[in-house]
C-alpha cells in the first residue's frame, strides 16, 4: 500500500491488478486506521464496506489519550482526512474540543486548516498552493497555548520551528 500511496500522491492511478491484490490481502479487515489523510477518500471508494478512520480519531477514542488533552492545548487536525469525511468529523472533533476545553486548528466555518501535508510535494520540487510556515503562523497568531498536539507527523517539524511551546504527536499525549 505504500507504493500505491506514493503513486496516488504523484497523480498515478493504481492498476486494477494492484487493487485486486490489495483487496485480497485486506479481505478479513473491517476497519482501516489511516495516517495519510489523502488516502481516506480512495480507500472508501475501493472498499465501501469497510470503515476508514484517521489516526487522530483512532487515538482520541482511547480514554487515556482523550483524558490527556487539556484546555491549554492547541490540537492540530490532519486536514485532508478531516475534509474527506467532513459531516461526521465536525461532530466528532466538536465533542473532543468541548470535552477537553482545548482549541483546534479549524477556521470559523470549522474547516480544518491545512499545514504540513503539502511538504512532501514541495520537497519533490512540485509547486504547492499552501505555504506551510505561513499556515502555522496564522494558526498560532494571537493564540496563547501551553502545548501543541499534532495528528500528522509531517506537522511536527514545522510547528517545532515556529512555536515557542512544546510540540508533541497525539500518540505522545500523557
Amino acid at each position: 500500500i505504500s507504493d500505491i500511496a506514493a503513486d496516488i500522491e504523484a497523480g498515478v492511478r493504481p492498476e486494477p491488478k494492484q487493487l485486486e491484490k490489495l483487496a485480497s490481502a485486506m479481505s478479513g479487515v473491517t476497519e482501516f486506521v489511516v495516517a495519510e489523510g489523502f488516502l481516506h477518500r480512495y480507500l472508501r471508494a475501493w472498499f465501501p464496506e469497510k470503515k476508514v478512520i484517521g489516526l487522530g480519531e483512532a487515538l482520541l477514542r482511547l480514554p487515556e489519550i482523550a483524558k490527556a488533552l487539556k484546555p491549554g492545548d492547541l490540537y492540530v487536525i490532519e486536514a485532508r482526512g478531516y475534509h474527506s469525511d467532513y459531516k461526521r468529523l465536525v461532530k466528532f472533533y466538536d465533542s473532543v474540543r468541548l470535552q477537553a476545553g482545548c482549541t483546534m486548528s479549524t477556521s470559523l466555518q470549522r474547516a480544518a486548516i491545512p499545514v504540513g501535508a503539502t511538504e512532501p510535494q514541495k520537497q519533490r520540487g512540485c509547486s504547492s498552493r499552501v505555504d506551510s510556515s505561513e499556515q502555522v503562523r496564522w494558526i498560532l497568531d494571537r493564540r496563547k497555548v501551553d502545548r501543541v498536539v499534532v495528528e500528522s507527523v509531517e506537522d511536527m517539524g514545522i510547528f517545532k520551528n515556529l512555536s515557542p511551546v512544546n510540540v508533541i504527536h497525539v500518540s505522545e499525549l500523557r
Binding site: A5, F32, A35, E36, H169, E172
Partner: peptide
C-alpha cells in the same frame, strides 16, 4: 472484525512514534 493500521511514510520514518502508536492501537 479486524483492524489494520496504515502508518504511511512519515510515521514509518519516526520509529519512536510508530512504536508508540502500535502499542496504543493494540490495546
Amino acid at each position: 472484525g479486524s483492524k489494520v493500521f496504515l502508518p504511511g511514510m512519515a510515521v514509518r520514518k519516526n520509529e519512536q512514534i510508530f512504536q508508540g502508536i502500535t502499542r496504543l492501537l493494540e490495546q
